[in-house]
Amino acid sequence: MEWLPIVAVVVTGLMVGVELSVAFVINPITDALPEDARVLARSHGARMLGRLMPFWYIGSTLLVAAAALVVPGAATLAWTAVGLLLASVVLSVTLLVPIADRSKTWTPETAPDDHREQSTRWDRLHLVRLALIVAAFVLVTVAVAQ
């Protein structure tokens, strides 16, 4: 089972990388586009990542929990990472997903008047989620390195 903690770190690290990219690369690029293109890009991103990320978040959480079971010397760090990942899932489901679900259907013609405000709120909440998963990644990495 020596491979399990490594897989947990890699899968969680890749998820963190994608979410960092969303926050600091993809969304700033889309926000610089003309308004119609921005709405379409955000809508497409919500659809595409909305299909993938639930599995990635739950999978990462389960892998880190499994790693906590096989790395007993650092279980406290790993279980704290699990708690942070669970908090990110709760934050996602309760606050981010409702915004993303609405934005999936937006077109330049159907986007609500407050679509920019909703996108900005999603971006701010995403930064909170990002802080949680980065901290979880650091903790699980330290745990398995001990």
Rank of each mutant, 00 (worst) to 15 (best):
A66W: 00
A66L: 05
A66T: 07
A67Y: 00
A67F: 00
A67P: 01
A68Y: 00
L69M: 07
L69G: 12
L69A: 12
V70P: 03
V70E: 00
V70Q: 07
V71S: 11
P72S: 03
P72Q: 13
G73E: 14
G73T: 11
G73W: 00
G73A: 07
A74I: 01
A74L: 14
A74N: 07
A74R: 12
A74V: 02
A75G: 07
A75S: 15
T76S: 04
L77R: 04
A78G: 02
A78M: 03
A78P: 01
A78N: 03
W79H: 00
A81K: 04
A81F: 03
V82G: 03
V82T: 05
V82L: 08
V82S: 06
G83Y: 04
G83M: 05
L84S: 02
L84V: 02
L84R: 04
L86H: 13
L86N: 07
A87T: 06
S88Y: 12
S88T: 05
S88N: 12
V89E: 02
V89H: 02
V89Q: 05
V89W: 13
V89C: 08
V90D: 01
V90K: 13
V90Y: 10
L91F: 09
L91K: 13
L91A: 14
L91N: 04
T94A: 13
T94F: 05
T94E: 02
T94Q: 12
T94N: 01
L95K: 07
L96S: 06
L96Y: 01
L96N: 06
V97T: 10
V97M: 08
P98R: 12
P98L: 13
P98H: 07
P98V: 11
I99H: 11
D101T: 08
D101C: 11
D101N: 15
D101F: 06
D101K: 15
R102H: 03
R102D: 09
R102E: 10
S103D: 02
K104Q: 09
K104I: 01
W106R: 15
W106P: 07
T107K: 15
P108L: 10
P108T: 14
E109G: 09
E109M: 08
E109L: 12
T110G: 08
T110M: 12
T110Q: 15
T110D: 12
A111S: 09
A111W: 09
P112R: 13
P112E: 11
P112C: 14
D114N: 15
D114Y: 06
H115P: 00
H115Q: 10
H115V: 11
H115R: 15
R116V: 09
R116M: 10
E117K: 13
Q118I: 13
Q118L: 15
S119H: 07
S119Y: 10
S119C: 14
T120C: 12
R121N: 08
R121M: 13
W122S: 13
W122N: 14
W122L: 14
D123A: 14
D123R: 14
R124T: 03
L125E: 06
L125F: 03
L127I: 11
V128W: 05
V128E: 02
R129T: 05
L130Y: 02
L130R: 04
L130I: 03
A131L: 08
A131R: 14
A131W: 03
A131G: 15
A131K: 11
L132Y: 01
L132Q: 03
L132G: 07
L132R: 05
L132I: 01
L132T: 00
I133F: 07
V134Q: 11
